[in-house]
Nucleic acid binder design. Sequence first.
DNA 1: ATGGCAGAAGCATTCTGA
Length: 281
Amino acid sequence: MLIATWNVNSVRSRLSQIIDWINQVDPEILCLQETKVIDDSFPFEPFETLGYSVEVYGQKSYNGVAIISKNKAENIRKGFYGFTNTDFNIETFQDQKRLISADFYGIKFINVYVPNGSSLESDKFMYKINWLNCLASFLDEQEKKGELICLVGDFNIAPSNLDIHDPKKYEGGIMASDIERNALNNVLKGRLIDCFRIFEKNTGHWSWWDYRNKAYELNKGWRIDHVYISKALSSKLKSCVIDCMPRGNLRPSDHAPVIIDLNLDEINVDFFEGEDDFFEI
DNA sequence: ATGGCAGAAGCATTCTGA
C-alpha cells in the first residue's frame, strides 16, 4: 500500500503531471502541499474520475493542503484541533492552511506544509518555530489518545547535514539551523521515525531543487520532504523512496514526491471483512 | 553580496516561496 507526499507548487498548474503520476504509481493515499487554491476552485473531477476521494484545505495564492485517497477518509480535520494545552492559541494559526488530517486503516495521517521561515532574522522565522511547537503539542495530544501516526509533508527543514548538497555553505542558515532541527526533533520526540533513513544512510538524496541556477541539472538539492511513522508501525514499513522523475518534467514542481510502502493488508482490512461476514450469517 | 526561477493576482508589477 503506497502512501505519498508531494509539494506540487499549485495543483492547477501541475494537474496533468499529478494525474499522469497517479496513473503510473497508483498510490493508495497522496498528500499534496502548496495547492494554492481556494476549496471551491480545487480541480476535484480529474481525481474523482480515477476513483479517488479528495479532501482539501486551501486558500488563495498561498499554502493549501489536500488528501487524495482511494478509500473515504474518516475524521477529516482541517488545521490544529483538540488542544488541552492552553500554551497555544490555535486560532492564531488558522488563517494559513497548512495542516489536514484524516484516519485510514486505524492510522491518523497528518499532512503538513511547514512554514519556510524566510531567514533566521525574519518574523516569519518565529512563526515557523511557533508553528512547529504547536505541531509538537498537537502530536502530544494524539499520543495521549494512543493514536498511530503517519506524519507527512514539506517540512522545510533538512534534518541533518546529510540532507543538504552543500552543508558548508548552508548549515546554520534557513532550513538548516539548530533552532529548526531542535524544533523538528521536539515534534518527533523519538516516537516518530524518518522512514527514508531506515533504508538510506548516505547523503546525496534530495526532494527539492531550487528553480534557479540549474539546481536540478547540477543535482544541487535538499531533502526537506519527509514521511514519519509511529515506531509501532515500523515493522510494517517495506520501503521509502524519493521519486525524482517528475522533477525532470517540463514546468515541474520544485519538489519531488516521497513514497512509502506500508504493509497494512493483514490488519484492519481483513478484520472488517470478517466482521461483515459474521453479520451476514 | 545579490539575483537567479516560478505561480498567483491581474494586467504591470509585486509578493511570496525555499
